[in-house]
Simulated assay, not measured.
Amino acid sequence: MRYIDCFLAPVPRANRAQYEQLAKLSWEVLRDHGALRVVECWLDESGPDAATYHGVDARQPADNYGSFHAAAGAGKDETVVMSWVEWPDKPTRDAGMEKLTADPRMQFGDRPPAFDGARLIAAGFLPMLDRSLIRE
């Protein structure tokens, strides 16, 4: 059964290009260690209001809803990145993440960080529904 790692991180808006470089490198390393897919998403801060995700009869005032900005603990100069990694199964994920974290390409001691990794929110998920109209 497929396995999904999900991540939510506050990232300084000024570090977008640096984060994109990190994301591209991460994809290469993750792919080399068994990941099937990586999706990185930069928050659309002009995007839809949370109320638009609810039925008309169930909508509440905007202040009643949480936000990704708040969930990630993003500050005033930060936005949010939401990403996920798709693996064939949990054993492949466990082995792949162990290799990823030890991979020399993922050691950044000589570079300033694109974001504060200590504030990263991460968890693994078991898919309940997986449907797509996309044919690749």
Rank of each mutant, 00 (worst) to 15 (best):
R2N: 09
Y3T: 06
Y3N: 04
I4V: 15
I4R: 13
I4Y: 12
D5N: 14
L8E: 05
P10E: 06
P10G: 08
V11W: 00
R16I: 03
Q18P: 00
Q18T: 11
Q18A: 14
S26W: 01
H33G: 02
G34W: 03
V38S: 09
V39H: 10
E45M: 10
G47F: 02
A51R: 15
Y53D: 08
V56M: 15
R59C: 05
Q60W: 00
Q60S: 11
P61F: 00
P61G: 07
A62R: 14
S67Q: 07
F68D: 06
F68W: 13
A71L: 14
G73F: 05
G75A: 07
K76F: 02
E78I: 01
V81F: 00
V85P: 04
V85E: 02
D89R: 11
D89E: 13
R93W: 15
R93E: 11
E98Y: 05
E98C: 02
L100M: 13
A102W: 06
P104E: 06
M106I: 01
Q107Y: 02
F108W: 11
D110C: 02
R111F: 12
P113K: 12
P113C: 05
F115T: 01
G117H: 12
A118P: 01
L120W: 04
I121S: 08
I121E: 01
A122F: 10
A123D: 09
A123L: 14
G124T: 01
P127G: 06
P127E: 09
P127Y: 03
L129H: 12
L129K: 12
L133N: 13
R135Y: 00
